Amino acid sequence: MKTVVAVYTGQGLAEPMRDIYRELLPDCRIVTIVDDSLIHDVVKAGQVTPAVTRRLIQYYQNGAEMGADAIFNTCSSVGEVAELARGIVDAPIVRIDDAMTYEAASKYERIGVLATLPTTLEPTKRLLRRQAEKLGKPVAIVDGLAEGAYDALVGGSPERHDQILLETAERVAGQADALVLAQGSMARMEERLAALGIPVLSSPYRGVLAVKKLLEEAGRGR
């Protein structure tokens, strides 16, 4: 049985991801590491701090020690730490948004990025640009920061969060060929946002597909 260690910086995404694991990785052991102080510290500082970086790398190393065949980084805000850790940790690390951003950069010229936090928006934009550079094609990125949505959510008003996100998407959709949802927790809004008439890409399903592909390729290589 293959082992996948999924690292979360908050509680919100872990439960919805379980159905995706059951569908795509039914024969894998899924080990979950959750430290919700991580995203709290990132939001408070407005960036990924050295302390957050050290803790995350330690979690990745813990995953490798658990015998992980793959480590799944589920938080876009700290995805660049996952890239850094690839040269340190003795287990392959998959970013949840790698496949999503590659698909967006390969298919579309104008990409709207929706996020409720600047700490997620900026890393996602940087990743999109790097994916486009790899493909050798130009892309235009439209900022879709849904200001106030995160505060509404943590303040216990999910309906207000969704409304702010929808209003932001409506503004961005007129300037973009597709929308990218920078946070995995936004995937539940994908169908609703698709009513705007342009493609909407989210990361959870695509991220787990990338993990599955990595495990299959490793198995064939043996």
Rank of each mutant, 00 (worst) to 15 (best):
L153P: 01
Y150E: 08
S77D: 13
E80I: 02
R22N: 12
C75P: 07
S106Y: 00
L127G: 02
D27Q: 10
K125F: 01
Q47R: 13
V154K: 15
L24S: 04
I141F: 03
G87T: 04
L128M: 11
T124P: 00
P92L: 08
T9A: 15
I57A: 08
R126S: 13
P138F: 02
V154E: 14
R55V: 14
R126Q: 14
E15L: 15
A99Y: 00
K134T: 06
V48Q: 06
V78L: 04
T101S: 08
T101R: 01
D19H: 07
G112R: 05
T116C: 12
G155R: 09
E133P: 00
D143Q: 10
D97Q: 03
L121P: 08
P92Q: 14
G136M: 06
T120M: 10
L13P: 07
G155E: 05
G10R: 07
Q61P: 01
E122T: 11
L24D: 04
M100Y: 02
G12C: 09
E133S: 12
P16R: 13
A85W: 00
T120N: 08
I93A: 06
V78Y: 02
E23A: 14
R110D: 10
I57H: 01
S37L: 12
A45E: 13
S76Q: 10
A64E: 09
T116A: 15
E109I: 02
K107E: 06
L117C: 07
P123R: 02
R54E: 14
R18Q: 14
E23I: 06
D41M: 11
Y21C: 12
P92A: 05
L24E: 13
Y21T: 08
T53S: 09
A85H: 01
R29L: 13
T53H: 03
E109R: 15
T49E: 07
I88F: 01
T120R: 06
G136R: 03
N73C: 12
V81S: 00
T116P: 10
A70N: 05
I71R: 05
A70K: 11
L145D: 13
V52I: 06
E15C: 02
A14E: 14
A51K: 14
V48T: 11
V43D: 10
G155S: 04
Y108D: 04
F72H: 12
V43W: 04
L25M: 10
I111F: 04
T101Y: 00
I141M: 08
D143K: 10
V139W: 00
L117A: 14
V113Y: 02
G67Y: 07
D69W: 10
R18L: 12
A152E: 14
Y108P: 05
A70Q: 11
R95M: 00
D41R: 15
S76N: 15
Y21S: 08
G156V: 08
Q47D: 11
L127C: 06
G144Q: 12
Y59S: 13
R130V: 06
D27P: 01
A152I: 07
L153T: 05
I88Y: 02
L24H: 09
T32A: 07
A152Y: 03
V154L: 11
L56I: 13
P26T: 13
K44I: 03
P118I: 11
C28R: 07
A82W: 02
E147I: 06
